[in-house]
Nucleic acid binder design. Structure first.
Length: 213
DNA sequence: GTTCTAGAAC
DNA sequence: GTTCTAGAAC
């Protein structure tokens, strides 16, 4: 068989598969419902209780990257009220526990993406090394290192104060387009590879004075 | 959320 | 020529 023919067949086959995978009409709901599937998959759940589930992020953007999800379906940040405060605090506490269990030296951040791609409210628990082959593009970086990433403590404080979370979606998405800036020293880089090479030199352990490096 | 790839950037 | 990004995926 001619090589060209094989390539064409492969491409076609791929396209058919991708179409099936992405279809929102399939029973499981497609990729945006992936967390619901993960929550109910014992193979990826690392912890749970009556109110929440903890899973490992399927494409970790750092050495340690977990998601804490409420069992009760909460679609997004907008749907939170003061009635959810206890749950939010419980999720936060579990996140701290998971981080401490994973690695006691590394600095972690606990928080939410302003405009998440995946359905079902989920709090990221992510170590600040950002040392991962899955971290590939500007959106990945900026979603964890701009105000697009909402610290769990800030969210809880806002819900306590105003009873809800309100943010402009277009404004939030604009953060994803910002310059690539080192989260430790704030230096700007032109490419993802140069940024990643740079951040690998920073000490991101707890109690380390980052202003001196 | 990822994959893939055209073409921009170097 | 190679690296890297950015947008489509019906």
């Amino acid at each position: 068989m001619k090589k060209l023919k094989v390539d064409q067949t492969t491409t076609l086959l791929y396209q058919v598969i991708m179409k099936a995978m992405n279809s929102s009409s399939r029973p499981t709901g497609g990729w945006s419902q992936g967390l619901l599937a993960a929550m109910n998959n014992p193979e990826v759940v690392i912890d749970s209780d009556d109110q929440l589930v903890v899973i490992k992020d399927k494409y970790p953007k750092a050495l340690f990257h977990f998601l804490v999800l409420p069992k009760r379906n909460i679609p997004n940040l907008k749907s939170l009220t003061q009635k959810d405060l206890e749950l939010l605090k419980h999720i936060h506490k579990k996140g701290e526990e998971i981080a401490n269990r994973a690695n006691k030296e590394l600095r972690f951040r606990l928080g939410y993406h302003a405009v998440p791609s995946m359905s079902h409210l989920h709090m990221h628990v992510i170590s600040q090394d950002f040392n991962s082959p899955c971290l590939k593009n500007k959106k990945h970086w900026n979603s964890f290192n701009t105000h697009y990433f909402i610290d769990s403590v800030d969210l809880i404080r806002e819900i306590e104060k105003t009873g809800h979370w309100k943010s402009d979606q277009a404004e939030m998405n604009a953060f994803l387009k910002k310059d690539l800036r080192c989260h430790v020293c704030k230096e700007v880089f032109q490419t993802i590879p140069s940024l990643k090479a740079h951040i690998s030199l920073h000490d991101v352990t707890k109690h380390h004075d980052s202003s001196s490096s």
